[in-house]
Simulated scan of single mutants.
Amino acid sequence: MIERADQLVLNYVSRAADAAHGVLKPDQRLDFARRLRARIEVERRGSQNARDVAKVLARFGDPVALVEREARRLAEAAAAAKDEQAASPGTSKDERAASPRTAASQGSTLRFPAITDDGAAPPGVRAYRRIAQERLSGSQGLSMPFAGLRRAAMSSANPMATGGRDARTIVKEHPRDVAAIVILVMAALLVPFELPPLAIFPIPLAVWAVGTAIVMFGESWELRDKLIGVGAPLLGYSLGGALIGGLRVEGGAGLQAFVTQFFDVSGTMFMIGTGVGVVWLSYRLLDVN
């Protein structure tokens, strides 16, 4: 668990350092990455929970935007230092080096730029701002409920457009959870094949049980999401099979006819339920932040 939370931080800082390559000078790039890591650790407050760390990183925003803001800050500091030097031609070199503006232009600052939820606004203003952001995100979620899946399809797009959440990033940061989803899909795809049972259990059921165990022990989903993801195939098999099988039985056909129809359609309903569960787990995994 600890390694995974630390890996999220390392991946984020690495993306920021990669984005700074060619934009900042080497010493500025190292200083930027060092200060970014230190600020993340401060905001993290020693948490080893991967979901909490992901929320902290989400507050910092897109690493590319941080690099662009750092480049603008350094450029403005350099211009200010140049103007100050032009206005005070008699200032010695040592005095200019001791100036905070000159130090900033050389690539070092006393503090990292404020992140999204910083600022000197009063508590009431920050509270109403947070409520407005939640309502805005909620309205966007209603209009585009599967926006996370859209971002996953844009794995080669601009990171600023995808919010840093694309298919490649998800696979890299959540390999076990992605493997669980793949196993559930395999369980559904094996249903049409008449494979010999494993002991007394059908092979699709055994594969589904493996995927279910991985999902239930994962940390990327809430308990509700896990129950939906692994429960949808069971509901499809039992309730869906009973409902569709009952509708296909003619009146007075008897219990044997119902059982026959149930087993004829339950496999298909299991596949449909698995598809629903996999879509939900994938959506929630993309929306983990």
Rank of each mutant, 00 (worst) to 15 (best):
A232H: 02
A152M: 13
A20I: 04
D177R: 03
G218Q: 01
A58I: 05
W280C: 05
P233Y: 04
G251A: 15
V249H: 05
S155H: 14
A213H: 08
R69A: 15
T268E: 08
E194V: 09
V125K: 10
K55I: 11
S137D: 15
L136M: 12
D166L: 05
A232F: 07
I244E: 08
E68G: 06
L190I: 00
Q85P: 00
V215A: 01
M154S: 08
E134N: 12
V67E: 01
A187H: 00
Q133E: 15
S99A: 11
A121H: 09
T162I: 01
Q85T: 15
A87C: 07
F258D: 06
L189Q: 09
V182F: 09
L223H: 10
S143Q: 14
A54F: 03
V249W: 08
V210P: 03
A19C: 07
P145V: 06
R165S: 07
W280F: 14
L281K: 00
A132E: 14
V171M: 12
E68Y: 06
K172R: 15
A20C: 08
E3S: 13
S156W: 13
R176G: 09
G273A: 02
A132V: 10
A209P: 00
L8G: 00
D6M: 11
A20H: 03
A86P: 00
P204C: 09
G90H: 14
Q28R: 09
T212C: 08
L239Y: 09
T169M: 13
F263M: 08
I244Q: 05
L286A: 11
D31W: 06
Q261T: 01
M269I: 02
T116Y: 11
E222V: 07
V67Y: 01
P123S: 12
L234P: 00
S156M: 13
S220Y: 04
A199W: 15
H174G: 00
R284W: 01
I272Y: 07
G211Q: 02
L30F: 12
F32H: 01
G90W: 13
F112D: 03
E222R: 12
A58C: 10
E70M: 14
F32Y: 02
V42Q: 13
S266R: 03
G61I: 06
T260S: 13
A120H: 12
A157H: 09
R44K: 14
L142W: 10
A179T: 10
